[in-house]
């Protein structure tokens, strides 16, 4: 399996091809979101909502042996695209990998400029929540 860094490099390349055009970048992010696997309606609970996002984002996990699989959804297409990028990088990995991941692709593709400060805060909240899940799994595994 590709490392977290491999996948980040892939994403950086993809966004590099889009260049500086903000509109096509946003369309691309939305397309990525549209490809996210179906999120179970029953998991759209108040508990699964990530705090700190302006739009609604639901995040939940499934255990797959020693790995964590993330499932997410959002009521906005752009946010869905953003979380799909995080899932692409972090889902299906061991808690430790997730905890230590340095997500430098976000800065390298200039995400802050593309999505603005409010959504950047939301993105940071998503990452934090994913790492919290990883921490909880790790604690449980070590118990």
């Amino acid at each position: 399996m590709n490392t977290i860094q491999d996948i980040q490099n892939e994403i950086i390349d993809e966004f590099g091809i889009l260049g500086d055009d903000k509109e096509s970048t946003i369309y691309y992010i939305m397309e990525l979101g549209a490809k996210l696997p179906e999120f179970p309606e029953s998991e759209k609970t108040e508990e699964n909502i990530i705090k700190g996002c302006q739009s609604k984002v639901w995040l939940t996990t499934q255990e797959n042996e020693d790995k964590i699989v993330f499932l997410a959804d959002s009521n906005t297409d752009i946010t869905k695209g953003l979380i799909s990028l995080l899932i692409r990088v972090l889902s299906g990995r061991k808690p430790q990998e997730i905890l230590h991941a340095q997500l430098d692709f976000i800065d390298k593709i200039g995400m802050g400029n593309i999505i603005g400060s409010q959504r950047s805060n939301g993105l940071a909240a998503m990452i934090k929540q994913m790492k919290l899940y990883a921490l909880a799994y790790q604690t449980k595994q070590n118990a």
């Binding site: 509109e23 946003i26 302006q54 739009s55 009521n75 297409d77 603005g116």
Partner: peptide, 21 residues
Amino acid sequence: GMHPFDVGMMLDANGIAVRTG
């Protein structure tokens, strides 16, 4: 079928400043 935040962001990409929310 679209969230106002997304519409606002796409308008912004076109240089158009509107309020959403």
